[in-house]
């Protein structure tokens, strides 16, 4: 087990390094430089050169890459060229929006997906199953941003129940902050809920077909108990590992939803960073997002290995 974890941890680091290097060298070829962006349209060449020197942009690409890598190895992601603040601090601020958003969306997805999936499996072949499965298909097909737009139109513009976008900050209190996250979380979570429903249904059906369930039923165990005790518990292996992967999906999907709802999250930071050619900031965001996704699949593997004793560590 230990050597397995160590080996996975090593590949985890290699994957992140690869992702960071990919983004570093792509950004280098992009047209546009941050100095011109900061100084604006009437900047003269000397001022541009001076600012580039000041920002450390005059060094050769490989030197800058080396500097960045050396910093990252010490967990120092450097400083944003545009904001003049440590990258880690900027990312930390944005995570205060993105993580609760993803968490809320995941809670919605799990809260809807798990019971609906179990229900559909239980009533397999019936009208309810068809309804739930149909809804799940539709949920998967709706573009999240389109859903977001119409949620804004309905709940914010017409009914005026919830804010249409923006984030008041956690200083404003839990109530307003959570209200601001509710619509985006719903838009983001809908497709995840649909996906989870389908997976839970399939997993539950798989378990329902096994011998021990038949045995339990034959022994006269009440159906509710069969579902909660035997089916759910065994399907949980699949479900819990899938939920971990769903979280990665949510983080990546947050980029566009944050645009729709004007949320100051990690996704909008990523867009700003690329658009302003802020290399250290882009690097930081890529490493954090890619790292989170790789890390979650790592956790998923471990969880799977832990929960399902049939898996052997090679």
């Amino acid at each position: 087990m230990r050597s397995y974890v160590l080996r996975r941890a090593l590949t985890f680091l290699i994957t992140i390094w690869l992702a960071a290097s990919l983004s570093f060298f792509t950004l280098l070829v992009l047209p546009g430089d941050p100095a011109r962006l900061i100084l604006g349209v009437d900047a003269n060449p000397q001022a541009l050169a001076a600012l580039e020197r000041q920002l450390g942009l005059d060094a050769p690409a490989l030197v800058r890459y080396g500097r960045w890598l050396a910093g990252a190895a010490r967990l120092d992601l450097g400083s944003s060229l545009v904001y003049h603040l440590p990258v880690a601090q900027l990312i930390g601020q944005r995570l205060q929006v993105t993580l609760p958003l993803a968490g809320l969306a995941l809670a919605l997805a799990t809260g809807l997906g798990v019971p609906l999936g179990l229900l559909a499996a239980h009533r397999r072949g019936g009208g309810l199953d068809a309804l739930v499965s149909g809804l799940a298909q539709i949920g998967l097909a709706l573009p999240s941003f389109w859903l977001g737009i119409f949620l804004i139109l309905l709940f914010a513009v017409r009914l005026n129940w919830l804010p249409a976008g923006g984030f008041p900050g956690w200083d404003a209190g839990w109530g307003p902050a959570l209200q601001a996250l509710l619509l985006p979380a719903a838009a983001l979570g809908a497709a995840r809920a649909a996906s989870l429903t389908r997976i839970v249904r399939a997993a539950a059906l798989d378990v329902l077909g096994r011998d021990f369930v038949r045995t339990a039923r034959a022994k006269g165990v009440p159906e509710a108990r069969v579902l909660s005790r035997h089916v759910l518990r065994n399907a949980l292996i699949t479900i819990s590992t899938v939920i971990v992967l769903e979280l990665g999906q949510l983080l990546a999907g947050a980029v566009i939803i944050e645009q729709v709802f004007s949320l100051p999250g990690l996704g909008s930071l990523a867009l700003t960073a690329v658009q302003s050619r802020d290399l250290p900031l882009t690097q930081g965001v890529v490493v954090v997002i890619a790292g989170a996704i790789v890390f979650l699949s790592f956790v998923n593997d471990l969880l799977y290995a832990y929960l399902d004793p049939r898996i052997r560590y090679a």
Binding site: I16, A19, L251, G267, V286, I293
Partner: peptide, 12 residues
């Protein structure tokens, strides 16, 4: 390499 590409958010 596939893991790295896969971890790269498509929008990015």
């Amino acid at each position: 390499l596939m893991d790295a590409v896969g971890a790269f958010p498509p929008v990015l």
